Amino acid sequence: MKDKKHTILIVEDEESIRKFIEINLERNNFSVIEASTGEEGLKKAREKQIDIVILDIMLPGIDGYEVCKILRKEYPTIGIIMLTAKSQDVDKIMGLEYGTDDYMVKPFNPMELVLRVKSLIRRIDMAKVEENNDIIVQGPYKVDTYSRKFYKNNSEIEVTPTEYAIIKIFIENPGKAFKRDEILNWVWGYDFFGDPKIVDVNIRRLRAKIEDNPSKPEYIQTVWGVGYRWRKREDD
């Protein structure tokens, strides 16, 4: 029995780039759907079961940032990789703040894009196939590894696949200080070639979602010169 093909939606207005990406993904056994505008991309995402969206920032009509924002609200567990022709850090960070899991700057190596897609697929699939119905509790927070859900005070908080992977590592290892490189390797994989700042942006996004005061985080603590840790409280 053949493995199920994962479906990738490419939202890119330049046909040559769409075809270039499509060819390389199909060579690696992915099913590919195309869209040339943000509106068309949203329509196809709502019609089909999509695993990952490869999303250009500069699109006619609504731009990639807005598409990302809508997709993340409607489909919290979908994977999103943003493409940009710009190399400024602000563009990368903006995309991450809107909820993308990863980004690539044009022009890019097609095999690197395929590796990024495979790495994100692994994170999504691992979250889906966790076998035990384990409930991990730390303070007011709870991770249900069977349903892949995260709660604060028994109210669900929507998290992306990347955010879920990070929070699960933290809650399973309270008090342990993780280096940024460790988080990168565990969450993004050893074949990740991007900017390590992606860790910091995801941490900031998580703090905004789960901490009572994100500017003075109680649980996701910074370990200066090292990275981050989940605070282990004696009364938890």
Rank of each mutant, 00 (worst) to 15 (best):
W188D: 03
S147P: 02
K152T: 03
R180L: 12
G175M: 06
A165K: 08
E182M: 06
V187N: 09
I166K: 05
P161K: 12
E158D: 09
R180M: 08
W186F: 14
Y146P: 00
W186K: 11
Y141D: 06
A177P: 04
F192M: 04
I157R: 00
I171G: 11
D191I: 14
G194E: 07
K142N: 02
T145N: 02
G189W: 03
E163D: 10
E156A: 05
F150C: 01
I171N: 04
F193S: 09
T145F: 00
Y190E: 11
S155Q: 15
F150Y: 07
F178E: 04
T160M: 08
T162W: 07
P174C: 12
K142F: 00
Y190T: 07
E156C: 02
Y164M: 00
Y164W: 07
G175N: 08
K168V: 05
A165D: 10
T162L: 12
G194L: 09
D144R: 01
A165M: 13
I171S: 04
Y141M: 09
N154G: 00
K149N: 01
E172Y: 06
N185A: 14
I183A: 08
V187D: 06
P174W: 14
S155M: 10
F170L: 14
W188C: 02
V159K: 02
L184I: 15
F193I: 07
D181N: 13
Y141H: 07
K152L: 02
I157W: 00
I169M: 15
P174L: 14
D191H: 08
Y190P: 04
T145Y: 04
Y190D: 11
E172V: 11
N154H: 09
N173Q: 10
K142E: 13
E172H: 10
F192V: 09
K168F: 07
P174H: 07
I183Q: 06
F192L: 10
Y141C: 03
K168R: 15
E172M: 11
F192D: 08
G194V: 06
R148E: 03
K149R: 13
N173P: 07
W188F: 15
G194F: 10
F150A: 00
K149I: 00
G175L: 14
E156P: 01
N173Y: 11
L184M: 12
V187I: 15
S155W: 03
Y151C: 02
E172F: 06
R180S: 12
E182F: 01
G175E: 13
D181M: 11
K168G: 02
A165L: 06
I183R: 09
T162M: 10
K179G: 11
W188R: 11
F193Y: 12
F178H: 07
K168M: 03
D191W: 11
E163S: 11
E172Q: 15
